[in-house]
Write a protein that binds this DNA or RNA. Sequence first.
DNA 1: GGCACGCATGAACCTGGGTTTAGAGACCGG
DNA 2: CCGGTCTCTAAACCCAGGTTCATGCGTGCC
Lengths: 200, 200
Amino acid sequence: MNLGLETGTAAPALIAALQAPAQAARLWAVRSLPKGAACFAPGDGSADVVLLLSGLVKLVYTTESGEDWVKSFILDQGIFSGRGASDSAESYGATCLEPCRLVRLPRAFVEAEVKSDPQVQAAYGKFSAWVLARKQAREAALLTMSPEARYRALLTDAPQALARLPQGDIARFIGITPIAFSRIKRRVQSGSISPSARLA
Amino acid sequence: MNLGLETGTAAPALIAALQAPAQAARLWAVRSLPKGAACFAPGDGSADVVLLLSGLVKLVYTTESGEDWVKSFILDQGIFSGRGASDSAESYGATCLEPCRLVRLPRAFVEAEVKSDPQVQAAYGKFSAWVLARKQAREAALLTMSPEARYRALLTDAPQALARLPQGDIARFIGITPIAFSRIKRRVQSGSISPSARLA
DNA sequence: GGCACGCATGAACCTGGGTTTAGAGACCGG
DNA sequence: CCGGTCTCTAAACCCAGGTTCATGCGTGCC
């Protein structure tokens, strides 16, 4: 069971397919952002599509009470935007966890390229399918697995990613507090085989 | 915050758009299934697309330990298939909660229609966007809200749907056991304002 | 260098949900 | 009409995760 952290090749392929057309349209402006910078704020009206060329970004939901919950991480190369296809009420922000290099493209430009360029269209189709599969995996993980099980799955599926992420962010991605995450790590490392398949 | 139970018009529109081509191809065969029947089993190799014309279907993940968790409900009119776009490891089954009328179409046929028929293509685009938004909402709900908060949100957003669903299935959709759900209902009905915004 | 801040950990206590067991009511077939 | 099964509710107990308070450690800033 993977939880939606694997990187895959779909996003890099789509980035590559978009580069030439964007350069031709003089829209290919690589921007560098330092660690801690916000790519966009939650509720940002901007419907830009962001291509991450290198670095590490987290997408976070912020609740009314001010808690942050990590929707997902984008590692090294990936594509994301503030609003999934249509506008949804649940908006999220994006923050650089490492220095990042990225390109912003207007959504309209990307959509036009998808329609007109078969290369881009093919890459976009694969990317969409991959996004859907990831979302499905994440949904299943949140619904059917306990936090500890999710952590164990991450340990198996994406150890190299875990090493680059702050503990607090991993916790908020798994769906628990950093304190509880610390306890889980202790349990797991001590080799105790928790009998809880899927508890609260 | 809606949790992914609202029905919307995207699915009915796509069903309507597909009907004529499917009839022309002699693929439009309406089947009736009784309450309790399985539309397909988890892991079913069939990549058919199912159009639900009337009735009520639940999609359920089954864990290795045999627990069922409700991925989503399809009310009255909707479209679903055993495998989201690409094949994912997490497979789910579909069961009728009410007598259903439905049509099964081969995925290849639907994909071909999407490419060749602009009508279908437009409807499919809207449907895809709607699916994505719903998945996003569900992900956010599972990640950022407590079970009780999810139930309260359902009460607000989809009371008519709740009335048609068995308690146990609602519980498994919210992400808890039927027993815990019973307790939550008691708490909510007794008007106690639980101070827990988002607890375990 | 030294101070402050943030992050990770630790311990103690609370609480919501899981688990088990049990019982009341609805539905169905004989 | 009766007995079986299924669903929902209830009560008692356990446990994982939340909460609070406190400590140690690394980083950055002055």
